[in-house]
Design a binder for these strands. Structure first.
Length: 513
RNA sequence: GAGCGCGUAGCUCAGUAGGUAGAGCAACGGACUUUUAAUCCGUAGGUCCUGGGUUCGAGUCCCAGCGCGCUCACCA
């Protein structure tokens, strides 16, 4: 919770001052400080109350979604011969002409016109019309019909105010387009820009489809700690918090991996978790500090069974939610999700794109090195390979491609390849020029795992501590397994063409004002 | 964290070369019983993000700060 600058010092001095401060704000004082628009609406609020009308409504039984009402209209109902219906929604448009008004209501299903006709309304309800502003939530009951111009309309016989809006909605034509306001005030954005509601519902369906897909294949969804005493499973910087009673630091998880693998040791065969991870790093159009990730582990699986699984999953989701495997973005980009998806070694793709035939020796092409920045000269050959792949190859992989056998040094939790341990038995699935999902043949040799961890801890930052308990777990024996992760937000960006991760997250993190 | 760009009425945006702050929608008053971003007549509405500075004079130029966006860095 954050406080405005003028209250913050009072809060810090204690609850007593905070309460006293709040008490000083009488409704009158608040209305004095309110803007012109709010003031006008408060006047109407008072007027309604004087008429004995509650401007904040009550439970209403029998409200039908607007799209459903609209679809119930049949030509034989004529002008006003349809059934009695109850419609509720936000007033988006208002067209008054003397003794008749047409209003456009909106709910989460769509828009519907209602008509307020003086002849059909009681005097009291007619007076409500004069107090209706754009943005108010109304409930009307009346006959379903159509106007002379053929617009499906509810001819209201009663009107009630479900909630009087004290603040005006954004301009009716332009809507809300300031991205900062859209993210900060999603509660306005969702109805001011109906495509935002559609996109968020699409997100919900995608997540639902994935859960169903996993469950149908015998995977069980589990919940592992989001607050961890060691943040392992990825090399990202964690958020740090503190447990008061235990007086210990706690970390928000950067990945659920090490706990899901403990479950494999515990005897679970097929598990997944789909929930938030937290990484304390830069924010960008592709990074939100908290993001939703799917992680899957299958005992006796491998990177290849994981690749099959994710390929099936994504095509099924696209087919069921988008309705096609030919994804087309507003900017003209086309993505073909038709199976089978390409599988190619990282070295192969790098050679294909840049001509560099990787032989485990340092990169000798000056023109390539120059593009990687000054640090690249100090990189190991393996790091150079990955760097060249990420900078020059990955962005060109628009159609799905499983990039396999990345160098094992960069993937401490994966199994080394039998024929050539320099590389790991892993894939990185790239679609739309970004990594959507990594998948591994998981390492289950405790000694090798300990070595990899030691190497990582020594080389990387000091925040990365060895998870001894995880190594203990491995010593009890973890079955060989396939594992995968998938960034749900990035999947949605790929499916919808959203250019920013914030567009597929209801409440992206924003710096407090 | 760095560079670049943006911040003007409730919303969407203009604002020339430094010279009293503008439009559309919304609001307010009036007319109107079939509108579709209704229309017509009239009225009002501003901490030009904040704070400094230059200048006779700053929305405009300079400096600092805040917020947002983009790019880079960070992120296997």
């Amino acid at each position: 919770m954050s406080f405005s600058p003028q209250i913050a010092p009072l809060v810090k001095r204690g609850r007593f001052y905070f309460c006293r401060y709040l008490l000083k704000i009488s409704p009158l004082a608040m209305s004095e400080s309110a803007g012109h628009y709010e003031q006008e609406r408060r006047t109407k609020l008072q007027k309604l109350r004087q008429l004995g009308i509650d401007p904040y409504g009550k439970r209403t039984a029998g409200v039908t979604p607007l799209a459903t009402i609209k679809s119930q209209y049949k030509p034989e109902m004529g002008h006003d011969g349809g059934p009695d219906v109850i419609a509720a929604g936000r007033v988006m448009l208002k067209r008054d002409m003397g003794k008749l008004s047409f209003l456009t209501l909106r709910d989460e299903t769509g828009d519907l016109q209602i008509a307020l006709d003086k002849k059909r309304l009681s005097d009291r309800d007619w007076q409500i019309r004069d107090s209706v502003d754009l943005g108010d939530l109304l409930v009307v009951s009346g006959k379903l019909g159509q106007t002379n111009k053929g617009e499906t309309t509810v001819w209201a016989s009663t009107v009630s105010m479900a909630s009087k809006a004290l603040l005006p909605p954004p301009a009716k034509w332009e809507g809300l387009s300031d991205v900062e306001l859209r993210y900060r005030q999603r509660y306005v954005d969702l109805w001011a820009n109906p495509e935002v509601m559609r996109l968020m519902k699409l997100r919900i369906r995608v997540i639902d489809e994935i859960r169903r897909f996993m469950t149908n294949r015998g995977f069980v969804e589990v919940e592992t700690p989001m607050m961890q005493t060691l943040a392992g499973g990825a090399a990202a910087k964690p958020f740090i918090t503190h447990h008061n009673a235990l007086d210990i630091p706690l970390f928000l998880r950067v990945a659920p991996e090490l706990y899901l693998k403990r479950l494999l040791v515990g005897g679970f065969g097929k598990v997944f978790e789909m929930n938030r991870n937290f990484r304390n790093e830069g924010i960008s159009p592709r990074h939100n500090p908290e993001f939703t990730m799917l992680e899957v582990y299958e005992a006796f699986g491998s990177w290849e069974t994981m690749a099959d699984l994710i390929e099936e999953m994504i095509t099924m989701v696209a087919q069921n939610v988008i309705g096609t495997l030919q994804i087309e973005h507003a900017n003209g980009r086309k993505i073909n999700l038709q199976r089978p998806w390409r599988r190619a070694r990282m070295t192969e793709l790098v050679e294909e794109k840049t001509g560099w035939k990787f032989d485990k020796n340092p990169l000798q092409k000056p023109e390539l090195l120059a593009g990687l920045g000054e640090k690249a000269a100090h990189y190991s050959p393996a790091e150079q390979l990955v760097e060249v792949y990420e900078k020059l190859v990955e962005p060109t992989l628009i159609d799905p491609c499983f990039v396999t056998h990345a160098p094992s040094v960069i993937i401490p939790l994966a199994r080394e390849n039998k024929e050539d341990p320099y590389f790991a038995d892993v894939y990185e699935l790239a679609i739309n020029g970004v990594e959507i999902s990594p998948g591994y043949s998981e390492l289950n040799d405790p000694d090798l795992q300990a070595k990899h961890f030691a190497h990582q801890v020594g080389e990387k930052d000091q925040q990365q501590k060895m998870d001894e308990d995880f190594l203990t777990a491995l010593k009890y024996g973890m079955p060989p397994a396939g594992g995968l992760g998938m960034g749900i937000d990035r999947l949605l960006m790929m499916l919808t063409g959203a250019e920013s991760i914030r567009d597929v997250i209801l409440f992206p993190l924003m710096r407090p004002v």
